[in-house]
């Protein structure tokens, strides 16, 4: 179970350029329980986007966006709607956003910040990982998490040890920042890497106060017993 909370509306609207059309994808897994995904997310974001001048080409809830293979399959039904969109907004934890980015050749942006995964390891079988930083950066990084693909968790490009696309840590391990660079280049958004981002607040993520961690877990347990 990954616990997430919605990003500030202005932040998400700030990701979109004037008039860009969006496809809205919400997760029906943990994110639904936390209130960041599910039908509730569609209800929340649809009017916000439309009022801000971003027509929706479509919107849907899919169960467990962290399962990349299923996301690919299930999104196929919406191919035409997704194609017409300039960007895809994903209401889920960081893993769901990354899994979606992996199956689409489009900019994929988060609408939530992932805070913690508490006691449970996730159910996803693929490589996408979320470091639960509490201030999701996937908009800036082409849908690839800098906290988990780069062992140093760097936020402004590769360290000097990155060579031929490999990480300095061990041969054969891809340099996460090379992957981010390549992805943004393919999307025509290298300008995002030229932006400075101040240090993150570590209290938002990994070290969240217990009180904030707990609530959604109780909700999940309750739901599972149901």
């Amino acid at each position: 179970m990954l616990v997430s909370e919605p990003k500030p509306t202005e932040e998400v609207l700030g990701y979109l350029r004037a008039g860009e059309r969006a496809f809205l994808l919400a997760c029906g897994g943990c994110a639904e329980v936390c209130g960041t995904g599910g039908e509730e997310a569609l209800k929340k974001w649809r009017p916000v986007l439309e009022e801000a001048g971003h027509p929706l080409t479509g919107a849907t809830v899919l169960p467990f966006l962290c399962n990349k293979a299923l996301v690919g399959l299930r999104l196929a039904r919406f191919r035409e709607q997704v194609e017409r969109a300039d960007v895809v907004l994903v209401a889920s934890c960081g893993v769901g956003v990354q899994a979606t980015a992996q199956v689409l050749d489009k900019p994929v942006y988060p609408t939530a910040n992932t805070i913690t995964m508490g006691g449970l390891q996730g159910v996803w079988a693929s490589e996408e990982r979320c470091g639960r930083c509490g201030d999701c950066l996937l908009y800036y990084t082409g849908g690839i998490c800098p906290h988990t693909v780069c062992p140093k968790g760097l936020l402004h490009g590769p360290c000097g040890g990155s060579q031929n696309g490999e990480c300095e840590l061990e041969p054969g391990r891809p340099c996460g920042w090379q992957r981010i660079y390549d992805r943004l280049k393919a999307l025509g958004r290298l300008d995002l890497l030229a932006r400075y981002r101040p240090p993150q607040d570590s209290q938002k993520g990994l070290d969240v106060p217990l009180a904030r961690r707990k609530a959604p877990f109780w909700a999940l347990e309750y739901l599972e017993e149901d």
């Binding site: 402004h156 490009g157 990155s162 060579q163 031929n164 660079y181 890497l193 030229a194």
Partner: peptide, 14 residues
Amino acid sequence: GVEPLGPHVLKMRL
């Protein structure tokens, strides 16, 4: 001397 140089130049500019 690093290859590919692109991301390193971007970071240098930053």
